[in-house]
Amino acid sequence: MTASPATPRAHSPLLPGPGLELLALNTATTKNWTLADAVAGCVEAGIAGIGLWRDRVAETGLDQAARLVRDAGLTVTSLCRGGFFAAPDAIEDNRRAVDEAAALGTDTLVLVCGGLPDGSRDLPAARRTVAEGIAALAPYAEAHGVRLAIEPLHPMFCADRAVVSTLGQALDLAEQAGHGTGVVVDTYHVWWDPELETQIARAGAAGLIHAFQVCDWLLPLPADALLGRGHVGDGSIDIPRIAALVAEAGYQGWTEVEIFNQEVWDTPGTETLRTLTERHRRFLAAGAPACH
């Protein structure tokens, strides 16, 4: 007799710790941890959400990664990243990213759109390439139950990482692409924008805020500007104010902590999570005061 396939066991969602409701760890914050380490750390700290980077998923294997997170009762809040639309294999790689997001059980694929092609100074052409790439990818993503989330990056990354620099630009692209495409509001990248309040309200009114990520802006900037991010409350950004704007715009999703910082990476992961949860409770939990 041939045995029937086993029915997958249902797993209860992890109950978050007090004051940590809708807090998520982005795995970039604990760069030196494996995915298994990050999952175990979240469970121990009472963090119920986890934002995954594709490199950590690839190290573990897609099926095993999905199983690890599911068995722990964690919610995959996003997958990072798709984008870089000027790359020769952009279409194939972005479709793989959509497939991975669907397999991992998240409906949000973060797009970092890419900078200028090597040797190019044609910024308008690079932006057209991004718009065309997103428009081509959006129907595929929608068909797989995945929302594209365009992340504008601070203008200092325009040449190498993202020719999309403002929330307004990202929203224009999202609206043009349709098929459920929206945006990421990342405090590190958008805090400086004089139109931030208007654009967050615009995004909220259209239901296009798909992800909210937080970290602070530290001075002096390090030699590698990518690593100038810090824990909430350590830098120049009024993060509670931006969180309030996002909430007022109708966003009710997760708050992902995504920090690129060598000192943070060199800190034991359990200590990083203790700081992360303490700051969330102090500055971003319900009733928390603004940080000035």
Rank of each mutant, 00 (worst) to 15 (best):
S120M: 04
A10V: 15
V184L: 01
Q176P: 08
I259E: 05
G133T: 01
Q169V: 09
L219Y: 14
Q199C: 07
Q169P: 05
V264W: 00
R9C: 10
V185G: 05
R67A: 15
T166E: 09
L52F: 08
A38Q: 10
T108F: 04
E44K: 15
G49S: 08
A149E: 01
S4H: 12
Q64M: 08
G133H: 09
G133D: 11
Q252C: 05
V110Q: 10
L25A: 05
R70F: 00
Y251E: 07
L148W: 04
A203Y: 00
W192I: 01
A28T: 08
D238V: 04
Q262V: 01
A101I: 07
N32H: 15
D99P: 10
A159H: 14
A162C: 14
L22S: 15
L74A: 07
E44N: 12
V185T: 02
T30N: 12
L20W: 02
P117W: 06
H154A: 13
T198G: 14
G119Q: 04
R128F: 06
L284Q: 08
G119R: 08
A211K: 05
P220T: 09
A3M: 13
L219R: 15
G145M: 05
R127P: 03
G180P: 07
C291K: 12
M156K: 13
S4D: 12
G61Y: 09
A141F: 05
G73C: 06
I150D: 01
Q64H: 15
D99V: 09
I47Q: 03
G230L: 03
D89L: 09
E256W: 00
E59N: 11
A102Y: 02
L23A: 01
L148D: 03
N261Q: 14
I239L: 05
R56E: 13
L68F: 10
T34M: 12
L104S: 11
A101V: 06
A90V: 04
D99R: 11
